[in-house]
């Protein structure tokens, strides 16, 4: 009881530090490593990333090794995930786009596992890190540009950014070209920011509601705990939704680049 009373006397600065600490913990170096002077230390975030990757792989791998002619529940789930990737992610604009679904489906499952794993207390939410999301978004961007150029040809791909039939070509062609390219370049940024901000905001909200207990006193638990639980449930929903959005947008961006000339 006396402990709780001391907790109730924490200051606003201290509360903020408590919350921030959860994210600072991600930078906690467990094994210090460097490659050509670049820091590649194994931090808590990296370990969480690995755990997420291993879990992702195991979920899928175990499912792929238990295949029977009469499927059990687990096999049905794995097959449904595969079917979801093949039919719902792939082929947004045409059959040719379907061949990229292994990438987007892997991305989806990986992000889903990481999003959900980040909700486990004391785990570090890797997807609430801009470095992580930006890397995947840039990877998508690189694939997008590569696919677009290799299918439509460099000239064809670049000029396809300008819509045909513009009036006053001298002015509008460069203008539209610039606008379209700004839009194209903003895609990876928005992709990265969307996932990062959603995951970070969700975690911060839970922390903030729980920190009311620290700031206002133990009686706030009556409000804070139910709210935290509700938000937690909501976060599970957001975790699935954001993983899906990231994956489907990646697929759509790739297919837009693929069919750039036709659209």
């Amino acid at each position: 009881m006396s402990n709780m009373l001391t907790l109730a006397q924490i200051s606003a600065t201290e509360v903020r530090e408590e919350i921030i600490h959860a994210f600072e913990a991600g930078q906690e170096v467990w094994v210090e490593l460097a490659l050509f002077g670049i820091d590649i230390s194994i931090t808590k975030a990296v370990v969480n990333l690995w755990i997420g990757a291993v879990v992702t792989f195991l979920i899928m791998f175990v499912g792929s090794r238990l295949l029977k002619d009469r499927p059990g529940a687990y096999q049905v789930i794995v097959e449904e995930v595969y079917g979801f990737g093949r039919n719902s992610l792939g082929g947004q604009m045409g059959e040719e786009g379907r061949k990229f679904f292994p990438y987007t489906l892997t991305l989806f499952v990986f992000l889903l596992v990481l999003n959900l794993a980040g909700l486990i207390p004391n785990a570090y939410p890797v997807t609430a890190s801009i470095t992580f999301t930006l890397f995947l978004a840039l990877l998508t961007f690189v694939i997008t540009q590569y696919v677009g150029i290799s299918r439509n040809g460099f000239g064809g791909y670049v000029t396809a950014f300008v819509p045909p039939g513009l009036p006053l070509k001298v002015v509008f062609v460069p203008f539209m070209f610039a606008i379209e390219w700004i839009s194209e370049l903003s895609k990876p940024l928005t992709l990265a920011m969307r996932l990062y901000a959603n995951m970070l905001a969700g975690h911060l909200l839970i922390f903030i509601f729980l920190s009311f207990i620290l700031y206002f006193g133990t009686f706030m638990a009556v409000v804070s705990v139910p709210m935290a639980i509700v938000l937690y449930g909501f976060e599970i929903f957001v975790a699935v939704l954001q993983a899906y959005i990231f994956a489907i947008l990646t697929q759509v961006y790739i297919e837009i680049a693929l069919y750039r000339k036709e659209h």
Binding site: F23, Q27, V46, W50, I130, T131, L134, F135, L139
Partner: peptide, 19 residues
């Protein structure tokens, strides 16, 4: 604070390898 987690080379490197 690390809350914005701007470009952490260690995470970037291992993310690339892992993914």
């Amino acid at each position: 604070t690390g809350i914005f987690d701007l470009i952490k080379t260690s995470l970037l490197f291992w993310e690339f390898i892992t993914f």
